[in-house]
Write a protein that binds this DNA or RNA. Structure first.
Lengths: 204, 204
DNA sequence: GCTGTACTTGAGTGGTTGTTCAATATAAGG
DNA sequence: CCTTATATTGAACAACCACTCAAGTACAGC
């Protein structure tokens, strides 16, 4: 055969993701990427095609990992609404962990990118739509087991939850302390739990 | 005296604001600004100092106009909570008007800018903090006239409202239709109105 | 109509951008 | 040990970036 690759593709992608998440698409230069990936331009282009392609792959990885964490949280709680509330409370700790950015990378991309980066913008939009679907699905499930009033609309609740998450994470990007973010997440979680039909799943 | 200025400063600033709001700081080049302002680089630099300076002035103008519209809405309604709810409902029409972007320019800047554009980032943060103060102030007023339960915390409510607005406007930047945004804004407005103490201001 | 002054111009600055590709390095197979 | 196949390199490229400044232009007062 031939020469062995010295760089692990997934590892390189993870490093690129961290950079893009932190600085955004435009502010991340190829020189930045060369340093972070410890690769020369030729290798980067041979592996990922273009800066835009690398960015789009980063978006996909980000969404995949984010969704996995979401599912992990859900499965640790006994009911859909409890899981969703726990997810919100978990986001309250955004300022405690060390992350490239407190804001969602998909939202950052949605707001930063325009017509000239249409493909990447569409990718971010599609991934957000997938997340919305997952939210809606959980409200649907809550309704099916009688945890949620049947007169409420899971679609509207799902979108509201997505807007809440977007708002919480954008707010967490401000110059505020951890306790403030925790309090905000707690308030959102309480609003969500207030939807629960009393006495059906748990008692009050 | 000397030669008269052919460009109105406020008008130029407004054009720059529209561009920056639409494309963000990094994606807006000086060539774009030259075309939009119909000014040559020398004039732009003589008038505004630098791209960064022009951007910061745009941020200030954006916040000033946004705050004025907010106050206008508030003053058209009989009580603080009614005014805030109307403000949210007004944002539901984000996709009906033709705007440079549906998302808030301050939030876009907060998410796009980093350490290298520290001054502009701080400006966005300060302006957002001012908006938060104004929200808190309205909840305070609602409490003083007995429209809001005295056990609730105006500071937390103000931050929650800011996160709601951030989320609503970020969501409106997605590829969704106008009715969806209206519905989301309506749900947020209803949540806010649910805080009203029954029978104190209006009847149910 | 001349002069002084301030505004405007646009070619030019040095640096950076994303991208390419011929040359080189490194492995396995024969 | 030589060939073959692939991975990697890094100099070079055209285009673009934010920005400067000497020259040109238009106006008010004289």
């Amino acid at each position: 055969m031939a020469r062995a690759m010295i760089h692990n593709r997934q590892d390189s992608l993870e490093r690129a993701l961290q950079l893009f998440w932190k600085k955004g698409f435009h502010a991340t230069s190829l020189k930045d990427l060369e340093k972070a990936l410890d690769m020369r331009p030729g290798s980067i282009y041979a592996t990922f095609g273009s800066k835009d392609g690398l960015f789009q792959e980063s978006l996909e990885r980000y969404a995949r990992l984010g969704l996995a964490e979401f599912e992990r949280t859900l499965s640790a709680y006994p009911s859909p609404l409890a899981g969703l509330a726990a997810y919100l409370r978990g986001l309250g700790g955004l300022r405690d962990r060390e992350l490239p950015s407190r804001a969602c990378m998909l939202v950052k991309s949605l707001l930063e990118l325009g017509q000239r980066e249409q493909a990447a913008w569409r990718k971010a939009e599609d991934l957000l739509a997938g997340m919305e679907d997952r939210f809606i699905d959980r409200f649907d499930a809550a309704q099916k087991i009688g945890e949620l009033d049947s007169r409420l609309d899971p679609v509207r609740l799902g979108r509201r939850l997505q807007a809440d998450v977007m708002g919480l994470r954008a707010f967490a990007q401000r110059d505020v302390d951890s306790a403030t973010v925790h309090a905000l997440a707690e308030d959102m979680a309480l609003s969500l739990e207030a939807l629960r039909k009393d006495g059906v799943i748990g008692k009050r």
